[in-house]
Amino acid sequence: MSKINKTLEIRTSPHIVRGLSTDDIMRNVVWALLPVAGFAVYTFGLTALVMLSVATLSCVLSEHILCRLNGRESTIGDWSITITGLLYGLTLPPGLPLWMVAVGGFIAVGLGKFLFGGLGYNVFNPALVGRAFLQAAFPVAMTTWHPAFADGRFFSLDGATLTVPFMEPVYTAVTGATPLAAMKFAQQPTAAYDLVFGFTSGSAGETSALFILAGGAYLAVRNMLNWRIPAAIFATVALLSGILHAIDPQHYAGPMFMLFSGGLMLGAVFMATDMVATPLTNRGVIIYGVLIAVLTVMIRYWGGLPEGVMYAILFANAASRHIDRLVQPRVYGTLKQAKRGS
């Protein structure tokens, strides 16, 4: 019985694992985002394709280089940075000059993720950190919108896309306001049908609620996304806007408009659900979702900006760990003991 004299591995229990790894989860999120990105390319053409590629590549390369500079193993293999890159790109106006896209990508990874210690340690959603930086640094470029469904969009780039760094971008085609801006500054609503199916202008990935919801549903079914977060956001936004709309329909857009316009869908489904930056418990994520919704509604209705989803999520990210501390689940057997003591 020579076989029996083999060296045996010693490892502590459990000796089996479920077999779903972190990179599996990350890859699935990438799959879920691809249709959204695909629709962005279909809507905005070559300009969006180039912009999304640059956004993703700039994030992936930044992570790779930063890891190497710090003498660590590169972590691009865990796919999380690909999500960040794609998400980041999807929040940008399609015609944004590429050098700005690349700078923002570097900031997203450097300030949003690497500075905190890399995957798992970031407090904020890195993609939104990048976007917030661009919003502050280039407010005009960040609110200049590329027209949707322009003729010949698959064969030509927007003039501003290839702007030389630090030069004034020159746009070949500019559209009017996004539905949110039209509503806020001109009290001009957009048809719900156009919003749901994405026949409007806006950031690359925010225009089609349909693809975003489908991707979210795919992840939620596989338990890779906590559905309570978008559910809490949608319900709260609908409730608050419903009440205010009933009071003053002239100034306050109704629930349908609020849910399907701007970055709410993309934000609620893909941004607010970044596992790392959300609370751990189910009670915690509901508080977190409600917080995002309240802040979003407040900024949209009463703030200086037409859109508030990004800041709302960033604020809620910062609150996540504190929410966790507030709503620790009751440990088995503790309540009864407390009763006994009293």
Binding site: V17, I25, D78, V276
Partner: peptide
């Protein structure tokens, strides 16, 4: 089948 690589905690809950 038991993976060797350990990733950081991603707070998946």
């Amino acid at each position: 089948q038991i993976p060797q690589k350990v990733y950081p905690c991603i707070k998946c809950a």
